[in-house]
């Protein structure tokens, strides 16, 4: 119905085919400009990352490499810190997303049941935390107190539960027919079993969208690594890159490489190569991510 309406609008209600006027041309120009502004920086980075380091510093590499080389990538890919960062980031994304989805959806299931004891109390206790918090320092001290500081689990446990996601789950669970629950109770199923065997399998759409939000958050986070860890072995990919970008740490410092490579690279080009190496996974998954995320916007807005 909606699509019909849109089609009608395209041709105009009176049936005349729409003719482009100055506004359309301006609009198309703006959009194309927008696309160029978004894509060009990636072209720039790509060109620089394939350019010889000493030559790059002379400037002028804007579209294509002038002196082509893959040395920058050799350096980056030989840096154990990058691989460790990758390993930590992938681990936290996989473990963190799975555990947060299971935990939050389980609590949400209980909160969605009308026969939950103290339901209103639980509900308001949750809502209040969305509007008021203790701030960074008390939170930091709690992390310290319960022994999460400088452990891998500081990436996982504080992210297990989110009130916002819980509310999104609840609004989805409301659409699951109550009969299913009643029938399961008749068969003597426990609530855990109902959650596991009925609710989870029926919730795939909402699980995948919330899972995507959580996973993107995990992939991109560097603040928690910066605040809650000191151990280099625990630093995430983004935190490693942050140090490279912000503190001009020479990437791949101390990596044993032949002198003919070390003498020609520059921090700039190696940084560019490091950026490309960490963007690649996002690019590969982007078509999938984008489709899912666009559906998610509607779900997220329903809640608001």
């Amino acid at each position: 119905m909606n699509r019909m309406g849109k089609m009608k609008r395209e041709v105009g209600f009176t049936g005349r085919k729409h003719r482009n006027n100055w506004f359309d041309y301006l609009n198309y120009t703006l959009m194309i400009l927008m696309v160029i502004i978004t894509i060009y920086p990636l072209v720039y980075v790509l060109a620089g990352s394939f350019n010889e380091g000493i030559d790059y510093v002379r400037g002028g590499i804007y579209f294509f490499p002038r002196v082509f080389t893959t040395d920058n990538y050799v350096v980056v890919l030989n840096d154990p810190r990058l691989w460790r960062g990758y390993f930590i980031t992938v681990s936290r994304t996989v473990i963190g997303t799975t555990s947060a989805l299971l935990f939050t959806s389980m609590v949400a299931y209980a909160m969605s049941r009308k026969d939950l004891f103290f339901r209103r109390f639980f509900y308001w206790v949750s809502i209040f935390t969305m509007f008021f918090g203790g701030g960074l320092i008390p939170f930091f001290l709690v992390i310290n107190m319960i022994g999460l500081y400088n452990t891998f689990w500081v990436y996982i446990i504080p992210g297990l539960y989110s009130v916002f996601n819980m509310l999104v789950f609840i609004s989805f669970f409301r659409t699951i027919p109550e009969d299913l629950h009643e029938a399961a109770i008749m068969d003597g199923a426990s609530e855990f079993k109902i959650y596991r065997m009925i609710i989870l399998p029926l919730s795939k759409p909402v699980l995948s969208i919330i899972g995507l939000w959580i996973a993107v958050g995990h992939w991109n986070a560097f603040l928690d690594a910066m605040i809650f860890t000191v151990d280099e072995n625990l630093q995430t990919l983004q935190y490693y890159l942050m140090k490279v970008v912000r503190e001009s740490t020479m990437p791949a410092e101390g990596v044993p490489l032949p002198p003919e490579i070390l003498n020609t690279i520059s921090p700039e080009t190696v940084t560019l190569a490091a950026i490309i190496v960490s963007v690649i996974p996002v690019m590969i998954f982007y078509p999938f991510i984008h489709r899912l995320a666009t559906q998610g916007v509607v779900i997220g807005s329903l809640k608001g």
């Binding site: 935990f103 389980m106 609590v107 209980a110 026969d115 939950l116 004891f117 206790v125 297990l160 539960y161």
Partner: peptide
């Protein structure tokens, strides 16, 4: 159900 909801409560 109470046990499940309590886990969220404990987290908060």
């Amino acid at each position: 159900l109470l046990l499940m909801a309590s886990l969220g409560f404990l987290f908060l």
